[in-house]
Design a protein around this nucleic acid. Structure first.
Lengths: 304, 304
DNA sequence: ATGTTCACATAACCAAATTTCATGTATTGG
DNA sequence: CCAATACATGAAATTTGGTTATGTGAACAT
């Protein structure tokens, strides 16, 4: 059997991503005619039409949809494969696909920007890709190889992945300026008082405050900004990472509620696939992150 | 980054498999010059030499060794990928890589030949590949995707694979014509008598007779023929599948020892990877095997 | 040593596959 | 019905990849 040329698949994926032949010209660096022919060749090889196109707009066929997903996957692993072979000489190259949860850039103990800087300061030919998603989704994408590394508070750990503990993130409960509790002294606030008000929670996999869970959250958000926004409306209470609130410097707009009693800690991990050796780029980045966190811990230990 | 053309990898793998450029001509259907150029291009793209060649013989470099392994893997998955896309129309195509343990062809309850016949009788464009190996090795190869299906008595089952019970295989203990026990009546033979003689065992993963294990086997074989040969020397006792001995029709050369007491049963399973949907060819073959076994069971049930 | 052979490399040339350019066609929107 | 959009197609140009013929250097026999 003759293998599909990978230019055909690249073309197909680019065309889908661009939503048509015309725009894909620039991405692929070839003319529209060439694209037309390549797609025709692909369809001839496959024996079915992968997309409807023309003046009426661009649309994948049912089979095309499936083919597109598979094609993207195989191209990704082909790129990783190339990088593996290229890294057998002394270069650092290929994709480095990192996944994180949102609001990590202000997490001081993690210091992701410093780790990234260290990584990028080395001579390299790496194409960086950073994805923001929930821990559950990150887990999924690590397993499929769509991501190489992920940094998140992984509460449910799976066997396929290896986790390294990085740092802690502290959460307090906050209320907005217009909320009834805003002016109540903190020593009068406890779980019982809290339970009279509506709580905004993060979606399940990001839950940080189990004590509040039974209170039937009236709002659920999948994003830190959204959480802050809802709390600022004055209609909800909600937990937020301390570093997140402090970095926004709006100390007047949010108030922490009884931080001595209502605080939660989540542990951030770095996760990679357990099986097989990793590419040089991945190993280096992991080392940078871990080292950065350790340096931080040492600094804090010395300070106390 | 520009992807390596897969013709380069195909050429590389073929050259390695043939042990040089000259012989690979016929496998690849191109001239030696073309191969020379392709390998040069591959090496230029990679930035290192993959093999030493010339009058002094053919030898992979250290990096070439690694590259070869990876290249073979990626070509296999590329072929499977192609088959997945092609099977989106109504054809059955691509590789079907089956693994079995040895001596399955006479296992009447399994009836592998009938299942295969049924599969091949359908219109198809499948390239069949059958590998014989131990259950441990089959498990490994299923996980890496090197095999699509395997049929064996899997005693240690792993989470990554899904198992379907197929049939039983009965084992008795045998001795050869020249063995001291050959002429002893079966009612005088028990474990105690047995323990005075040397036992030939199958290697660990194929062990069928735990009672004999403590007897410190003096011979270990990884193959049924080898087991039979050793027993026929008259120096060893050893377990063999009943169907295997009967099918060889040499009833005079081997004698079953106390078949009422010394018999063991192993269960044959069909195993596939748990994750992801399988290709049409794989699904069809699995259905054929399972159906064939069920038909057999029904037949036996009706008979008793 | 010396010539021969083997296994691959290289050059020149050629064929086939791809791309571009120019143009055609179908569909939508006004 | 016209203009514009988005793709298809044909011919010419270009690039890619192949073959044939020949070169090179290491091993081997004499």
């Amino acid at each position: 059997m003759k293998l599909l040329r990978n230019t055909l698949l690249e073309t197909f994926v680019a065309v889908v991503d661009c939503g048509g032949f015309t725009d894909a010209q620039f991405t692929l660096g070839i003319t529209q005619s060439a694209i037309s022919i390549r797609i025709r060749d692909l369809e001839t090889a496959l024996g079915y039409r992968v997309c409807e196109r023309g003046r009426g707009g661009f649309r994948l066929t049912e089979r095309g949809e499936i083919a597109y997903g598979k094609a993207r996957d195989i191209l990704r692993s082909a790129r990783d494969f190339d990088a593996e072979l290229l890294e057998l000489r002394d270069v650092t190259t290929g994709d480095l696909r990192i996944g994180v949860v949102d609001a990590v850039n202000t997490l001081a103990d993690l210091n992701l920007d410093k780790s990234l800087k260290r990584f990028l300061d080395r001579p390299n030919d790496v194409r960086l890709e950073i994805v923001v998603a929930s821990p559950t989704e990150l887990t999924q994408r690590l397993i499929t190889g769509e991501l190489h590394v992920a940094i998140a508070p992984f509460r449910n750990q799976v066997a396929e992945l290896t986790y390294t503990e990085l740092c802690q993130e502290e959460h307090w409960l906050y209320c907005g300026r217009d909320h009834p509790l805003f002016d109540l002294p903190n020593d009068q606030i406890d779980l019982d008082v809290i339970s009279r008000y509506q709580i905004c929670q993060r979606s399940y996999s990001m839950l940080v405050s189990p004590e509040l869970q039974s209170n039937d959250p009236k709002a659920i958000v999948a994003n830190m900004e959204a959480m802050a926004t809802l709390i600022e409306t004055g209609h909800y209470l909600g937990p937020l990472p301390v570093h997140f609130v402090e970095s926004r410097g709006q100390n007047g707009k949010l108030k922490e509620l009884a931080p001595n009693r209502l605080h939660w800690t989540s542990t951030f991990h770095l996760a990679t696939r357990s099986t097989s050796l990793h590419r040089r780029a991945v190993e280096l980045f992991v080392a940078d992150v871990v080292q950065s966190c350790e340096a931080n811990r040492d600094l804090q230990d010395a300070g106390t």
